[in-house]
């Protein structure tokens, strides 16, 4: 089983990102379980979303306290101390490093991946909705999901700007930097 945590701010699309990824794993024949922190949804507020994936039915109905993978749509939410204490050894960290000078050197003992998802989303005319860009970056960093399947699920799922969303995922796949 892999356990993935998404961190973002309301409006960036962290919840939808986790649901699209869940659907990709579902289409691949896996058993995904996807949920978000519940209550006070509003633009700009911190949002966390969770995804477990396994080959068999997942019985756990509790929080993810020691994730295998952490995905930050909002770089200002990165707490390096917390990551070092909860992330499993060899775990994956994917950060949207837009608008930050931090090179996250302290996190390079894990598998670190960086992408300026905001620049990509803006280039595609999607404003601050960076969820499909971050998913393209995830496909590159994790090698867990094939890009063509991700594109297919994005096409089926996003309500508007379908080609821009697909293009953002593809561009992010190309531009994501891996530090491992």
């Amino acid at each position: 089983m892999i356990e993935i945590k998404f961190f973002g701010r309301g409006g960036q699309g962290a919840v939808i990102a986790s649901q699209i990824l869940a659907k990709v794993f579902f289409v691949m024949g896996k058993y995904p379980q996807c949920f978000s922190v519940f209550g006070g949804e509003r633009r700009g507020a911190p949002v966390a979303s969770f995804l477990r994936v396994d080959d068999k039915k997942i019985l756990l109905k509790c929080e993810i306290t020691a994730p295998d993978e952490m995905i930050y749509l909002a770089p200002d939410l990165v707490d390096e101390k917390e990551i070092q204490s909860v992330l499993k050894p060899g775990g994956l960290i994917l950060i949207n490093n837009a608008l930050t000078d931090n090179d996250f050197r302290a996190l390079r003992k894990f598998r670190l991946a960086l992408v300026d998802a905001l620049a990509i989303a803006e280039e595609m005319g999607m404003g601050a909705t960076i969820n499909t860009a971050i998913l393209g970056a995830y496909a590159k960093a994790s090698k867990a999901v094939p890009m063509d399947l991700l594109e297919q699920v994005i096409k089926e799922t996003v309500p508007a700007k379908v080609s821009a969303n697909v293009a953002a995922a593809k561009r992010a796949y190309e531009l994501t930097e891996l530090f491992y």
Partner: peptide, 12 residues
């Protein structure tokens, strides 16, 4: 059904 754990968890 349990709020959140059953009502909002997405599963197959």
């Amino acid at each position: 059904i349990d709020g959140f754990f059953t009502s909002h968890f997405m599963e197959p």
